[in-house]
Design a protein around this nucleic acid. Structure first.
Lengths: 144, 144
DNA sequence: GTCCGAACCGAGAACTGTTCTCATTTACGT
DNA sequence: ACGTAAATGAGAACAGTTCTCGGTTCGGAC
């Protein structure tokens, strides 16, 4: 399961002429173990062997290879998570107080309905839709 | 209609002990005329009389008074739009190529369904939901 | 195995969107 | 009008992110 993840990451990097190095593997590992997107400070704390500048660079490389996905909230830091096709389609609970971001999923039938409606919207506006993004903004359990 | 908008903006600023000045009114005016959230450079270009530092400050003030809403995408600049209760509930088409953001609305019945499902999710996670945010990410008509 | 070139690495400098400072101006309340 | 508190704008400061560059590591060729 995790081995497969690394195989895919490796393959995707190779196609762009880049290597799946120890540092990059470490990043993927940290993100795989998290239950929500992480900021750079969080990542660096979870794996003290990572250098900040390299983490930024490698996450950019991994993003370009479609292994990780970068999201940006109103928080100070950007956040990184594994690409959706390496995990599963999900959405985010965003806490306005502490900035934390947690994952949640929706019933597949609801997702299906949503996709259909959004496809119509995109069509009507000559917009080529790639994916949708649904966030729930409020206050997390810890901050209530 | 627009007069009412200014009245509301005025009232909301007063309650926080602040004035609805010419500059702040100008910001609201620019945002009201736009058909999507605007970046600071866009705002400054639409009204050359505005100073950058004041625009940032005043938009922050207006945001605190719930007159404008700040959104942040993967683009370099944050974007500002009027608060939803001053316009209407809507979502965003985000172009990954040029970064532009346009508004779109969903059928009320779909919105209702969505709200209901999301309320359940929030409940299950002890999350106090404030509002939801739905973006469609892809390529706009101009960039296709 | 070892050589070579290309990719990678980390520390710190540089960059850039945003916020802060402060001297000046404006505007409200009396 | 007048005094005081808030607002303004130019530029400095700040902070997250990106870039630079000398040194290191990796992978293929022989």
């Amino acid at each position: 399961m995790t081995a497969e993840l690394h195989d895919i990451a490796n393959a995707r990097l190779r196609t762009t002429g880049q290597r799946y190095t120890t540092r990059r593997r470490a990043l993927v590992e940290v993100l795989d173990q998290a239950d929500g997107p992480l900021t750079i400070p969080q990542i660096l704390e979870l794996d003290r062997s990572l250098a900040q500048s390299s983490a930024y660079r490698n996450l950019a490389v991994l993003e370009q290879a479609d292994v990780v996905h970068r999201i940006v909230t109103n928080d100070d830091f950007a956040r990184y998570e594994l690409a959706e096709d390496l995990t599963e389609h999900h959405h985010h609970l965003i806490c306005r107080t502490c900035g934390s971001v947690a994952d949640f999923t929706l019933d597949p039938s609801v997702e299906g309905d949503l996709d259909r409606v959004l496809a119509d919207v995109a069509d009507a506006q000559s917009f080529r839709a790639d994916h949708h993004r649904l966030d729930l903004v409020g206050t997390c359990a810890d901050c209530r």
